[in-house]
Amino acid sequence: MNGRSLTMQTAAALTGLLLSAMVADAAELKVFTSVALTTALDELAPIFEQKTGNKLTISYDLAAVQKKRILDGERADVIILTRGMMDDLAKQNKLAPGNIVNVAGTPVALAIRAGAPKPDISTADAFKQTLLSAKSISYADPAKGGLSGVVAGRAIDRLGIAEQMKSKTTLVPGAQSPDLVAKGEVELGIAQASEIVPNAGVQLVGPLPGELGSMTQFSGGIGADSASANASKALIDFLAGQEAGSHFKTKGFEPGG
């Protein structure tokens, strides 16, 4: 056997050892997060997995539901919920000591069917007239903890048109409002911009105007019971970084915060 063959065999052996070490060190991370982040994280998860060798198991649900699961004792390595919820979890010792990191924000916004003329929502009064003129509207049921639904319901109450809107409003359990708009089942939908932008059947009109609107800031932290703190921190740092930020932008988010 010549020297070159030995060198190649040695290189192959070293590569094998390195791969074995990576597999041995690879972590399986359980992630709890809001359904609003679905489209972005479904795109980013395989990128992170390929870069690190770590495996992600992501659970999506309403942010309020995920917070309750953690408070009830369920374990997650990485938790990404609204900033206020994360602060609450930290106070109750459900997060590992360390910084809570802002990952991305998204405004509550109005959606209409793709190709339809955009209504005026530039002021509170214009938004009020747009709602009153609409034949039907949909948003997440505030009673189920949907953040955009809470904002929508509060805005309609503040505009003084709750009674007029009641008969033409369809409440949904989660992020289905843009789908109803796309199917033509309702004329307008109020949802997180991140739930509107990826849906090809709808178009984003814009955020709710002025004080009626709300920016939802999603932040990440490491679960108090995580056995993979380093890998968990690597995921949060990746999601808060520049590469992930470009993906978040295409999904209707504002990166970081």
Rank of each mutant, 00 (worst) to 15 (best):
S194N: 02
G98R: 03
A11R: 10
Q50N: 12
V181F: 12
D77S: 01
L17T: 12
T39G: 08
A26V: 05
Q66V: 03
K94F: 09
G98H: 10
G53T: 05
S194G: 13
A114S: 14
Q242E: 15
S122R: 12
P178N: 12
G149E: 10
G223N: 00
I137S: 04
A193G: 04
G256Q: 11
T15V: 12
P142E: 11
P107T: 09
D237I: 09
G146M: 05
D157A: 14
A116L: 06
K233H: 14
L71H: 10
K183E: 14
A162K: 15
I161L: 04
V65M: 13
V103P: 00
I222F: 02
K67F: 12
V101W: 04
E49V: 02
Y60W: 08
Q164K: 11
T82Q: 12
L56P: 00
D125S: 14
N99G: 13
S194D: 06
R158N: 10
P119K: 05
L17M: 15
D42I: 04
A155P: 01
Y60E: 05
G241C: 02
A244R: 00
A96W: 08
Q242R: 09
D225C: 03
T52K: 04
A224F: 03
P207H: 08
A40Q: 01
D42N: 13
E187Y: 08
L159I: 08
V35Q: 03
E211T: 14
L19H: 12
A26Q: 05
R69N: 10
K67E: 15
I79R: 01
V181S: 09
L6S: 11
V151H: 00
I79T: 06
T15Y: 12
S59C: 07
S133M: 10
P207L: 13
I79S: 01
G223D: 03
V202F: 04
Q164R: 08
G84V: 06
A63L: 08
G252E: 03
S138K: 00
